[in-house]
Design a protein around this nucleic acid. Structure first.
Length: 414
RNA sequence: GUGGAUGUAGCUCAGUUGGUUAGAGCACCAGGUUGUGGCCCUGGGGGUCGGGGGUUCAAGUCCCCUCAUUCACCCCA
């Protein structure tokens, strides 16, 4: 196929049965969120570019990986690279801060990042996420993390170890930042090229560099700089999670790449995906809504979860359960009767299909055995008596059922 | 964005130092069985050898470019 007629780089066609697994995943995620009191919010897949720029000036996914275009009239638009900024915008724009707090929301849909693709790193991928607005308390952080863990378990993965950290608040982070810069400044010549730049732009990112691990092992730990509130917040969160039976480990190097976070950050990966790919991640961002012209104090916590990665790590048979399905086969000359019977079953909410290619009975049965549990054979002796043969293909049992009782017969088996 | 590997049928892959109409297994379709799937036998359909250009009497095979995938970085879901 000519290159210009192929799908764009880093995107994918999702065909059955994978599309079915996707759909099951979507339902599982949203149902679980609803059980926690989170309701679905749908926002556009594109926003005005400033919505993202406000939120992440030194964030890679907004700075270098943007899919942007100019609309007629000169409006600058960007395909959303993540869900949090859009939800914050919607929260502010729709005045949800006037609703009873906290406001619990979840979202599900495609995200776009113009990066170099790799396995499980796509230019269009699907994210599920949840956000809770209005509570400054660590209970909110805990609920969000428990929800994410719960979805992971519902997919058949055993409970993940949550990597947790706090990057402090506007009061204590500047002090930490200073001593971090001072520490790295003294070792400047030993740093890799990227870290030389990070030192200027985003010093916290120095901590998750994989090259200069030796240098960072002696770097100051933010934990020693937490203010009283931050210390209490982290301690209570860790306590709540372990009380709830979740395994938590503090990762002093976890800082995350989006720079709207305050205090809590967390991330979990999965062994089957390798260390480079996170299953879900998130944190607290108390200043985000304000940045988007929302009320002064609008606390929020949330996470984003990679659906393709979840499915890759999930049980192979997750989402593959078949519904009861009936194949209505016909003997030569009974095409019409079979066609009508299949429609009658469908109208009665039984998944059914008939042969549409005038195939031999042998071919119909072969096809039926691949896609159905039951086959109805229309025609011949049974038809003359007002009945049809019904065969259970897995048990290899066959019986005669009156035509007008077929629907009841299959309903009883549902 | 940087560096490496790989692209032959729907899938997994063979294809000798360039040499007739490019093969296998699985999958698909038909027949053997005029009313019964799976097993077996026989036959069949399906390929611009990722795309473009070049070298050559001759290119799947050699060279260049390009596209895509993939791995390590970068970063994240």
């Amino acid at each position: 196929m000519r290159p210009e007629l192929q799908r764009p780089r880093g995107t994918q066609d999702i065909l059955p049965p994978e599309s079915g697994r996707m759909e099951k995943m979507r339902r599982t995620a949203i149902d679980t969120a609803q059980a926690y009191g989170y309701q679905l919010v749908e926002t556009p897949v594109f926003e005005q570019t400033p919505v993202f720029l406000r939120v992440g000036e030194s964030t890679d996914i907004v700075q270098h990986e943007r899919y942007s275009f100019t609309d007629v009239g000169g409006v600058d638009l960007t395909l959303r690279p993540e869900g949090t900024a859009a939800i914050a915008r919607a929260y502010v724009e729709n005045g949800l801060y006037n609703k009873p707090q906290p406001v619990r929301m979840c979202y599900y849909g495609p995200m776009f990042r113009r990066e170099k693709p790799q396995a499980l790193r796509y230019r269009q991928h699907t994210q599920f996420g949840a956000e809770i607005y209005g509570s400054v308390e660590p209970e909110a952080d805990a609920e969000i993390i428990l929800l994410a863990c719960s979805v992971v378990e519902k997919v058949g993965l055993h409970s993940p170890v949550v990597r947790l950290n706090s990057i402090g608040c506007s009061e204590c982070r500047p002090r930490y930042r200073e001593s971090l810069i001072a520490y790295y400044e003294g070792r400047r010549s030993d740093l890799c090229e990227d870290c030389q730049i990070r030192l200027q732009t985003n010093p916290l990112r120095l901590l998750d560099c994989k090259i200069d691990v030796g240098i960072r092992s002696l770097a100051p730990d933010i934990k020693d700089y937490w203010c009283e509130d931050c210390r209490r917040h982290y301690g209570r969160l860790a306590e709540l999670l372990s009380e709830a039976g979740r395994e938590v480990v503090r990762d002093p190097y976890l800082v995350r790449g989006l720079d709207y976070y305050t205090r809590t950050v967390f991330e979990i990966g999965h062994p089957s995906l390798g260390d480079q790919t996170a299953l879900f991640g998130g944190g607290r961002y108390d200043g985000l809504a304000t940045t988007l012209d929302g009320p002064a104090a609008t606390p929020a916590v949330g996470f984003g979860m990679g659906i393709e990665r979840m499915l890759s790590a999930a049980d192979k048979d997750f989402g593959l359960d078949r519904t009861l399905s009936v194949y209505v086969a016909h003997l030569p000359g009974y095409n019409t009767q079979a066609f009508i019977i299949s429609e009658g079953l469908r109208q009665g909410q039984i998944a059914a299909e008939a042969d549409l290619m005038d195939r031999s009975l042998k071919a119909q049965l072969r096809d039926a055995s691949r896609r159905s549990h039951y086959v109805v054979i229309v025609g011949g002796q049974e038809w003359a008596e007002g009945s049809a043969a019904v065969k259970d293909l897995r048990r290899n049992e066959q019986k005669t059922v009156p035509v007008d009782e077929l629907l009841d017969y299959f309903r009883r088996r549902d």
